[in-house]
Design a protein around this nucleic acid. Structure first.
Length: 486
RNA sequence: GGGGCCGUAGUAUAGUCUGGUUAGUAUCCGAGGUUUGGGACUUCGUGACCCCGGUUCAAAUCCGGGCGGCCCCA
């Protein structure tokens, strides 16, 4: 090939050397999304990402339902008046809202927002639905697409103007119950994000200056990318009492008094979490998935389309169907076996079975597992045991690998120079800090200006503090975590 | 928030600086033949200058705007 030898088949960029390019390449070559849709920040999700995201949705929804959340579908459009009811919320979201202004060629009497999030839609209904303490706790959720006119650079999956998520909206009789909900949301994140998707993260309480618009307290998970930047994943919020007042979300308590409810919300963004799955588990060959959320489980590659081999492939597929239906037989006669091997490794399918005459004759199978990139020969009669084993181990292996990398990157720092060093190593710095309320913001600005990083927050369970704030020298009141962020 | 780079077949690119031939190459796609155990070979064929405006005898090429993409810094 002429020019810069750029190959339009396999992944060229090295994940750890040139992460940005690696990600762009993987998105296109593994056919996760088509970025050619002619609208900035919007992309077409292709089957290989959708299969996986559907599974991710399902794990989250099952986990939420088990904890008492019930599903809803709310309208995509929200009247402007709903937005204007709570000052903090308006201020935070107005610059990011897409507005619908016309119906046909008639100008609408009131602008309609394409929901950037649905608090103001849900609370509108909460005020109608919630009458008595017996209606509480009220726990709901919906899966939805939301829209934000993000002015920063957009990136497929990571930062799009339309994204796919789940949002839970809950109401409680008192603040304590609301806080417990936040803790439950953290547990859900641990169960699903880490337990099933195998993504290590830390959940921080965001500093007061970095809260969700309209929240009294914000907690958010940070996942670490190989380039050393963290990306925010599920966040959970205690909503400011101003909302209950603004939307008149009241209930009659046991003591016969009318009281305002306490709301929480939790938002795992599936399309963005998918990005983290790609980024955290992928390698230089392309994608890797934990079995549970792999788009498909198994590919059978007959070495040729010889009728004997095709028949054998069908037979195996049928046999495997008691365990999984997600078996692809690759009969594309335009590709050589070698090309297929590389292709399916790039796509990250967990198990590949190479089927040739040799195998049929010897009643053996050549199998390749993507978690360990290992090829081995097994007896055909052991296939089901092998698949069961890989289905369990693939996630475990990916999780172990990711956890190890993550833990090694969190380091204590007691001077500005040390913080800089930790960040330059692609890590998260843990250090003493004056305050995460208003008056600590000066130091946070310093962190941003001088180091190009952000104070991500504190742990919910307060840590022992001693010593000084690394940035202003006052007595440290908090232990904070500092990282570069998207 | 600031800066830089880029837009030519489905994809990746040459050509742009220095305006002028039938816009070249690889891959993909379609048809045929030979192949098939780690990115096969061959013959034939289809397919492109992002949009709008300007300069000019002449624009992929120069200028302005729009739309879209990529990268870096804060």
């Amino acid at each position: 090939m002429v020019g810069d030898e750029r190959d339009n088949k396999g992944i060229v960029a090295r994940k750890n050397e040139n992460f940005s390019e690696w990600f762009t390449e993987v998105v296109q070559k593994a056919e996760l999304a088509d970025i050619r849709y002619n609208l900035k920040g919007f992309l077409v999700f292709r089957p290989w990402s959708v299969y996986s995201m559907e599974k991710m949705y399902s794990f989250f929804e099952k986990s939420l339902q088990k904890k008492g959340h019930e599903p809803h579908f709310f309208p995509t459009l929200i009247p402007e008046e709903n937005f204007e009811k709570e000052a903090g919320h308006v201020k935070g979201f107005t610059p990011e809202v897409f507005w619908v202004t016309h119906g046909g060629d008639k100008k609408l009497p009131e602008k309609l927002a394409l929901r950037p999030t649905s608090e103001t839609a849900f609370y509108q209904m909460f005020s109608l639905w919630l009458r008595s303490y017996k209606d509480l706790p009220f726990k709901s959720y919906q899966r939805a697409q939301v829209f934000r006119y993000d002015t920063k650079a957009t990136r497929p999956f990571l930062r799009s103007r339309e994204f796919h998520w789940i949002e839970t909206h809950c109401a409680f009789a008192n603040e304590e119950d609301a806080l417990n909900q936040v803790k439950e949301d953290m547990k859900t994140s641990e169960e699903v994000l880490h337990g099933i998707f195998c993504l290590p993260f830390m959940m921080f309480e965001r500093p007061s200056w970095d809260k969700f618009p309209g929240a009294s307290r914000t907690f958010a998970a940070d996942v670490l990318n190989p380039d050393g930047k963290v990306i925010q994943q599920p966040s959970t919020h205690m909503i400011s009492p101003d909302f209950s007042k603004a939307f008149d979300v009241k209930f009659k308590d046991k003591d016969e008094k009318e009281k305002y409810a306490f709301m929480t919300c939790y938002g795992p963004a599936i399309s963005r979490i998918f990005a983290s799955v790609v980024i955290v588990h992928g390698d230089d060959k392309g994608l890797r998935f934990p079995w549970e959320i792999a788009p498909k489980h198994i590919v059978i590659v007959p070495i040729s389309n010889d009728s004997e081999l095709v028949k054998k492939a069908e037979e195996l597929k049928k046999k495997i169907s008691v365990f999984t239906d997600e078996v692809v037989i690759d009969l594309d006669d335009r590709k050589s076996p070698g090309e297929k091997f590389n292709y399916w490794e790039m796509k990250g399918i967990p198990v590949r079975i190479d089927l040739g005459k040799k195998e049929v004759k010897d009643k053996k199978l050549s199998v390749f597992r993507r978690d360990l990139n290992k090829k081995e020969v097994i007896l055909e009669k052991d296939l089901m045991n092998y698949l069961r084993k890989v289905s369990v181990e693939s996630g475990e292996n990916l999780k172990r690998e990711a956890d190890k990398l993550f833990k090694g990157r969190i380091r204590d720092a007691d001077t500005i120079a040390k913080v800089k060093w930790v960040l330059s190593e692609g890590g998260i710095a843990r250090c003493g800090f004056c305050s995460v309320d208003g008056d600590g913001e000066k130091c946070a600005v310093k962190v941003e200006k001088e180091i190009g990083a952000e104070v991500r927050g504190t742990l919910l369970e307060k840590e022992n503090v001693s010593g000084k704030c690394v940035f202003c020298g006052k007595n440290a009141k908090e232990v904070v975590y500092i990282a570069k962020a998207y």
